Amino acid sequence: MPERQRVALVTGASSGIGLATAIEFAKRGYKVFAGARRLEPMQVLKDEYGVIIFQLDVSDLDSVKNAKKFIQEQTGDDYLDFLYNNAGQSCTFPAIDVTDEQVKQCFEVNVFGPVRVVRELAPLVINAKGVIGFTGSVSGCVPFPFSSIYSATKAAIHQYAATLRVDLKPFDVKVINIVTGGVKTNIEDKRDLPSTSLYNVPGIKNAFDQRRQMAKKNNPIPPEVYAKGVVDDFENASLGGKLNIYRGRMAFFLGHLMYFVPRFIVELALLRKFGLFGVFDAIKQKYSKVKLQ
């Protein structure tokens, strides 16, 4: 009986990390499914690499359930060897400016989405004794300014992955979390501060731009390089092996920073890096004698 071709699913595959990782899986001979909300950007995956593309919105339960059916129909089987939860949503706003809708959108894609994808597709991964992976982030480890919501989603997914790893041990399913540093992608949040923001003081525009473009301005690695490492990580995953794997510019350093450097020093370094000392002084002066309502 011929050996079964192994199957991979990559979510959020319309650009950046997801697109590059789908290509890398395909280059290594896997049957690859690539899902995203937009089909058009993924056409190159189908045309040039034979990847099976389909519409997938991880924030919609019916869409996720349909993804399972689609994979079963296309493979004629009930196996999924590699499940890469990569779909992501940025959110770069001060904590007191973010709206309910922005919070909901970020958590829907970054946390609830992977949770429902894992739950619905778990039977296929269990059948294959496969690997489930997540795109984590150094933002889940370091308190970058104006990143409270995005950081919270990534910290949540880090802990979800850690506990999922324990839960799935009896099924021989491996779980890995890719703590991601700088990678050249288009995830940058381009939304401006609201006009009502208390942070609208002299200097905030430049500081806010510096923060939003953090990855772009710090020599990020190409997504193709990142993808090769990630597919290696999936192929080399083992029960009891590494959970957190560090990929991207400064990922290992930032992923461990808070363990070794006092928090107040990290906070001061971040304020200096993004030019926020002057901004925060202006905020103090502006509101020191004003009663907010």
Rank of each mutant, 00 (worst) to 15 (best):
R4Q: 08
R4F: 02
V7C: 04
A8R: 00
S14F: 06
T21P: 02
R28Q: 04
R28G: 00
V32E: 01
R38T: 13
L39V: 09
Q43W: 02
D47G: 04
Y49E: 04
G50V: 04
I53H: 05
S59W: 01
D62E: 12
N66Q: 15
F70D: 00
D81T: 13
F82K: 07
L83I: 06
L83P: 03
N86G: 01
G88L: 09
S90E: 04
T92G: 07
T92P: 03
A95V: 14
C106T: 15
F107H: 10
E108M: 14
P114R: 13
R119F: 09
E120M: 08
L121D: 10
L121S: 12
V125P: 14
I126P: 03
N127Q: 13
V131L: 08
V138D: 03
V142E: 07
S147A: 09
S151R: 01
S151L: 02
H158N: 05
A161R: 06
L164V: 02
D167A: 14
D172C: 07
V173Q: 11
V183D: 05
K184W: 08
I187C: 06
E188F: 04
N200H: 08
P202K: 09
N206P: 01
A207H: 03
N219F: 11
P223E: 07
E224I: 00
Y226F: 14
K228D: 00
F234E: 00
E235S: 03
E235Q: 07
N236A: 03
S238Y: 09
N244M: 04
L254V: 03
M258L: 09
F260R: 09
L271V: 08
L276F: 03
F277W: 11
V279D: 02
D281K: 12
Q285V: 07
Q285Y: 06
Y287P: 02
S288P: 02
Q293N: 09
Q293F: 10
